[in-house]
Design a protein around this nucleic acid. Structure first.
Lengths: 342, 342
DNA sequence: GGCGGCATCCAAAACGGTTTCAATCCGTCC
DNA sequence: GGACGGATTGAAACCGTTTTGGATGCCGCC
């Protein structure tokens, strides 16, 4: 059942039927109701492909997921972010289209999406320092929102981010207040913007207490259980091992737990750990009492916010470049305690 | 730059240009080259929206992700499956569109996708026993591939699945051979088809040795760290506790590890654990030596296979209903050992 | 020299909607 | 009673491709 057939059946022109269904004011209310009823009865659904061609809008937003050829990793926060954003798209009748491409193909992919008109805008994931995608998207004129920020980018751009710096600063201070002086940082890859900011917060807190950073206690790695385990083992074997760790993700924390276990140490007593908790649905940080003390910020919520931001950007009724800085909560769990006496 | 403009610039008709670019034989080779060159020079990209309307194909595949309202969980294997499938779509110039909807909306969503012509086919995720989606998709005539199977479904349908039954049977046998007699099963939710099959394999292996199932050692839960921890604690506190566990996912295994730690037990010595390892990129089961003994099957590879299956289904050059049963590897890691002497 | 066949190209009709512009009807006002 | 204006509807253009159904020219063949 298409528009023309429906119109014929009603003895009306396609024009009027279209207008009736789309809520245009210039159609008689009685007619509109008749049309609505007939549309419902015949289960008429306007063809998306036709609408898209006619209106010139794609009614879709893109998410480009680069697959790093070397370290084949799919970002674990990705699923939850997508879920949050997807809810918003669904409610607004937008499609969410994912492009999974080798990372070398990322730039051409954006250009293609734009040139072929597949999407009206995109979300930029996992920005690096000086991320080139921002300039690119500006250049090709494709609306976008960055999940995170890209230090060193001079032009303004829309973003949604967690205050990573503040979060890690607070976490470090919390450990310092507990008497810890040897605090290790298990960070994500530090060409990622969020990782640099976290490191900055950590460094600030140390400096504020007159403590020097110790390169032996800082590692920048992929955020996997194995990496957490390896780094934990190595540091705990140092002559002057850390008494506390800051880990950039829950999964790193789990590896850390295993390392402590291997060395017969108990989390929260012998070793303190604070993680960053993205509040992933399949990785809840405990129920009533959190397993890990953590800086927490829901990535799913970030997905919702970013999606809404992008949709209003697309609709064009925004005068300023929107940005949104989310504060992380510092929640106390079972993985921290006072620094053990030496 | 659109087709008409390009045609004018070349002094040709849109027809010829279109045919030249799409490789139709009835165009002079010299002309074709001229067209190709011009298209490249002017960076011409045919408008996807127009192609879709003209050809009547969506050039897109749908994945419907129901968000359970009660237990708000996004399936963690989802990201990797998507990554695998997405690679295939990209290579074949298909879009992957994700619909995130409240689970009550799932059926209408499929109907809408079909009626509005947004997609040419869909992948069905996480099938339950007697899953109604299969009959639905048959009814509305939307091509699909199920990731998993749905017991109790009478009509044939295309699927890609792991041999869950065999995997858990082998894992159980392995533990039995190590002398374990009290073997617990930490399963996923047992209205999920895969969970039922795993339980079946476990039960078979026990029965083959004349052992009875003990309901106190079997739990069906959401697969989270917390659930693994809770179930582990409970079972280890039994008067006659299990000496070995079968866990349906790596994350359950991590919760189990924490439970053991809480009780001062050591994995692989005091307690044996076998997990099912979906080979997720962000949850590698160790490097050289696996952390957990595991039944392993790459969900990413399953995604690739399912996507390819769906595309050939859509292309229509398949006479039979395709199915594919993948065998899981049983890999030996550090989490299993002989049953401790009582 | 006419004719069939082949190679090559094009005009125009789809595809299924939206949107512009114009037409009709009817009541009101002067 | 005719001009005007608002309410309602419709014809036709348009979005940018693909595809159908010719057209044209050229060649070889009888």
């Amino acid at each position: 059942m298409n528009l023309k057939e429906l119109a014929t059946k009603l003895g009306l022109s396609p024009t009027t039927v279209s207008r009736a269904l789309n809520g245009y004011p210039e159609v008689n209310e009685a007619t509109r109701e008749r049309v609505m009823a007939a549309a419902k009865r015949h289960n008429y659904r306007p063809n998306t492909r036709a609408i898209r061609l006619a209106t010139g809008r794609a009614m879709a937003v893109g998410h480009v997921i680069p697959i790093a050829s070397r370290h084949e990793i799919v970002n674990p926060v990705f699923a939850d972010f997508i879920a949050g954003a997807g809810e918003v798209y669904s409610r607004n009748d937008y499609d969410m289209v994912l492009s999974v491409v080798p990372d070398a193909q990322e730039e051409p992919t954006y250009r293609l999406l734009r040139a072929k008109g597949n999407v009206d805008g995109v979300i930029v994931h996992a920005p690096k320092m000086d991320d080139p995608r921002i300039a690119l998207l500006h250049e090709i004129g494709l609306p976008f929102v960055v999940h995170g920020r890209a230090s060193g980018c001079s032009l303004p751009y829309p973003w949604v981010d967690v205050n990573n710096r503040r979060a890690f600063q607070r976490a470090t201070e919390f450990l310092l207040d507990l008497g810890h002086r040897r605090i290790a940082l298990l960070n994500g890859l530090e060409f990622m913007d969020f990782a640099m900011r976290r490191r900055g917060g950590y460094a600030d807190a140390l400096a504020a207490r007159g403590l020097a950073e110790d390169p032996a206690l800082m590692v920048s790695e992929e955020m996997t259980e194995v990496a957490g385990h390896r780094a934990g083992l190595r540091m705990l074997a140092l002559p002057d091992p850390p008494t506390a760790f800051l880990a950039s993700s829950m999964i790193l924390g789990m590896g850390l737990r295993r390392a402590c276990e291997d060395r017969g140490l108990r989390l929260g007593r012998d070793v303190s750990v604070i993680i960053h908790d993205d509040d992933l649905s399949y990785m809840k940080n405990g129920e009533d009492v959190p397993i890990y003390t953590a800086t927490r910020s829901s990535v799913r919520e970030a997905g919702r916010i970013a999606a809404e931001m992008l949709l209003s950007l697309i609709s064009g009724n925004l005068t300023e470049v929107p940005t949104r800085l989310l504060e992380a909560d510092l929640i106390i769990g079972q993985s921290t305690g006072p620094a053990p006496a030496r």
